[in-house]
């Protein structure tokens, strides 16, 4: 009889071990010092960094590889200047509309719509309002203006400079101009 009780106790203990898995905390690890990085990881919290964040902005005055200096400021005057004079560095052989479409569908179409007519999912669901069509007469978008808007944002639209690299931005600009031409047909 006593061994029966023992068996029962063991069974209950085993069921405790298995039934009480708490998903709010991470599981045990065999050798944590092999699991956790010695070096600083991206998005880690370490005391040596300001705000304890290893994610920091690039040092001021530096330009990342594949990027170049953008000489237009985030002002209305510079927007108008860019609208007139800023041109794409990509020539016709470098423009990749497939890539442009891919990026446009990720970053822009959610508001501007896949056709650029201002009817994205968020507009249709009445979450965002007032997204213009690319063939809007009052705005009359141009290469430089589009790039400036992606770079700094405009009015209710925010900047997408950190989600798109410089070359990718120009690909998106090319694709937007194609959508505009399609809309104006």
């Amino acid at each position: 009889m006593k061994s029966l009780i023992k068996i029962l106790v063991v069974a209950v203990m085993i069921s405790f071990v298995f039934s009480c898995k708490n998903n709010l905390v991470p599981n045990y690890q065999y050798m944590p010092n092999m699991y956790q990085s010695v070096g600083y990881e991206a998005y880690g919290g370490y005391q040596v960094f300001p705000n304890e964040q290893s994610a920091m902005l690039p040092a001021e005055g530096t330009i990342a590889r594949g990027h170049s200096l953008f000489e237009y400021k985030n002002t209305n005057e510079d927007f108008l200047r860019a609208k007139v004079e800023l041109m794409s560095p990509l020539d016709s052989t470098q423009v990749d509309l497939t890539k442009g479409k891919e990026l446009f569908d990720i970053y822009c179409s959610i508001c501007h719509g896949k056709k650029g007519n201002g009817q994205g999912t968020l507009v249709k669901r009445e979450i965002m309002f007032g997204i213009p069509s690319y063939d809007d007469v009052g705005r009359a978008i141009t290469t430089g203006g589009i790039y400036h808007t992606i770079y700094y944002g405009k009015n209710a639209m925010g900047s997408y400079a950190n989600q798109l690299r410089e070359e990718e931005r120009w690909q998106v600009v090319a694709y937007v101009l194609k959508l505009k031409a399609d809309l104006e047909k």
């Binding site: 071990v17 298995f18 898995k21 998903n23 709010l24 905390v25 991470p26 599981n27 045990y28 690890q29 065999y30 699991y35």
Partner: peptide
């Protein structure tokens, strides 16, 4: 039990 140590499937922190 030993095999699931170090496996965080289902981990859902707040």
């Amino acid at each position: 039990y030993l095999m699931q140590i170090g496996v965080d499937q289902g981990y859902q922190p707040v």
